[in-house]
């Protein structure tokens, strides 16, 4: 969140990146910037390369060409956990909770430091952080309480519940709580609205706006254009691994090239 050392307000620079899988050129010399504090929407037809971009940023894939810089540090080719600890967290398109651990432990896992002998947070600090995060995303709402009451010693009252007890929307919230526990400056959200009802989309948008106010920059990929366009500050449109257009949601909605890509895509 510190302004120091960030050129032109760009928190993340995606600079001439290419990635191919066998004969498929998934990302082709793509460049875009993410500005500090904004919510950037990343849209494009199926197979345009949106999730590949996330995997390139988070180090799951390594680019064939080009550079990725985060807060002016080159992070190209870093291991996923190193990228996370540098301040970039992601959520998955399909929620991936740790099924055999309780909801609170799921969040606590994201607080584990990698220095095996360091103490990190104290037990109390950890459980307080977990409870606050669970409360913030209201992951335990389903269990009949508003948010997550701190019933005793900072324990969450869903501490004995497992992710399998959660409905889809709450699993998406749990993903966000896990990502937030790593204290990211940049949050990558892969289809956060997928499978949500209209009112759940509104709740999720409100949550993402709150996080924006706290200074967390976000990149959101989604097919739900209505929910996305109301949420984001700027949009980058991707098609066949290349940038098709970039601008405010209003500009994008009027852009003939974007309409072409989407209409030709949907007419098939």
């Amino acid at each position: 969140m510190s302004k120091a050392g960030v050129i032109n307000g760009a928190i993340l620079q995606f600079d001439g990146v290419s990635k191919s899988f066998g004969g498929l050129q998934a990302i082709n010399h793509l460049s875009f910037d993410v500005r500090e504090g904004e919510i950037l929407g990343l849209i494009g037809p199926n197979g345009a390369g949106k999730t590949t971009i996330f995997n390139l940023i988070t180090g799951v894939y390594h680019p064939d060409q080009g550079k990725i810089r985060f807060q002016n540090t080159e992070i190209t080719g870093w291991q996923p956990h190193r990228v996370v600890n540098a301040g970039i967290a992601r959520t998955f398109q399909i929620p991936r909770p740790f099924h055999h651990k309780t909801i609170t432990k799921n969040v606590e896992i994201a607080l584990i430091p990698n220095a095996i002998l360091s103490h990190g947070l104290s037990k109390q600090e950890r459980s307080d952080t977990v409870s606050q995060l669970c409360a913030k995303v209201s992951v335990c709402k389903i269990f009949g309480t508003e948010g997550c009451h701190l019933i005793e010693d900072g324990f969450c009252d869903c501490m004995f519940e497992f992710p399998s007890a959660l409905p889809h929307a709450a699993l998406r919230n749990l993903e966000i709580a896990k990502a937030m526990a790593t204290k990211p400056n940049l949050l990558l959200l892969d289809e956060p609205f997928a499978g949500l009802t209209m009112s759940e989309v509104d709740d999720m948008s409100a949550l993402l706006r709150t996080m924006k106010q706290e200074g967390r920059t976000q990149i959101v990929v989604d097919h739900n254009m209505r929910g996305l366009m109301r949420l984001v500050d700027r949009v980058v449109v991707i098609n066949f691994g290349q940038k098709l257009a970039e601008g405010t949601p209003e500009e994008i909605a009027k852009n003939p090239a974007v309409q072409e890509a989407y209409l030709s895509g949907s007419s098939n």
Binding site: T58, V60, Q79, P80, H81, R82, V84, N85, A89, R90, F92, R96, P97, F98, H99, H100, K101, K105, E108, I109, A110, I112, N114, K178, A179, A181, T182
Partner: peptide, 20 residues
């Protein structure tokens, strides 16, 4: 806890910042 996270989903554990 880190061990169990790796058992349940190694990629998600990495995404949670764990050096698997």
């Amino acid at each position: 806890l880190a061990f169990e996270a790796i058992r349940d989903d190694e990629e998600a554990a990495e995404a949670a910042g764990i050096d698997a």
